[in-house]
Amino acid sequence: MIGSRAVLFQAECPFDLENQQRFWAMADAAAAWHGVREAVPAMTSLTLLLDSVPDDLDRLAGRLTELWQTGLRKTVEGRLLEIDIRYGGKAGPHLADVAEMTGFSIDEVIRLQSAPEYTVYAVGSHAGYCYLGGLDPRLETPRRKVPLTRLPGGSLSLAGLQAGVSASAGPSGWNTIGRADVRFFDPFRTPASLLKPGDRIRFRPVEVAA
């Protein structure tokens, strides 16, 4: 339980697109269950927001495990968004830290980070924020021990095998290496969130500051 009326389901599985697609399928199925307000996939996990406090958690856990074991996957033909990134300097204060932690030069970090096409695994944290899968495992870094209290919107950050670009200013415990100028969330647009799970992002380096 993560709240009186909120359940988190996680499964032991590798962090990859195939498993993530199973969580997307689970979210679609569980959203239709009686008593479920919202079913939202995170990074290889699923959260259910419920109408009331569940009276039988074992039964609910059993249903979720059963759903996971069906192995059903949802494939999404998502849109591809290309994003210009300014790396380093004030835009990416932890670029040098990431280079040091991974043993690569700054140029190599940028090359490795901008090479792959990323997939939106989940939308969450703050409005419009996309958790991306597809980071080169050689760029895996730990979260920062002391989070930054205010990071500007558009910041490109990494932690673990995850990557993402913040949609608005806020606190962050990730390693920030660059910045973009994109409006990921607009309450007066339908849908308000620019991207959804299954969409893809490619980063284009346009500037590097030391």
Binding site: I2, G3, S4, A6, L8, Q10, F15, V40, A42, M43, T44, S45, L46, T47, L49, A122, G124, S125, Y131, P142, R143, K145, V146, P147, A159, G160, Q162, G173
Partner: peptide, 18 residues
């Protein structure tokens, strides 16, 4: 070990590295 990002709701009590 680092956790993968997951759902949280108001009322959750988290324990960062410190």
């Amino acid at each position: 070990g680092e956790l993968r990002s997951h759902g949280i709701v108001p009322g959750i009590v988290q324990v960062p590295g410190g």
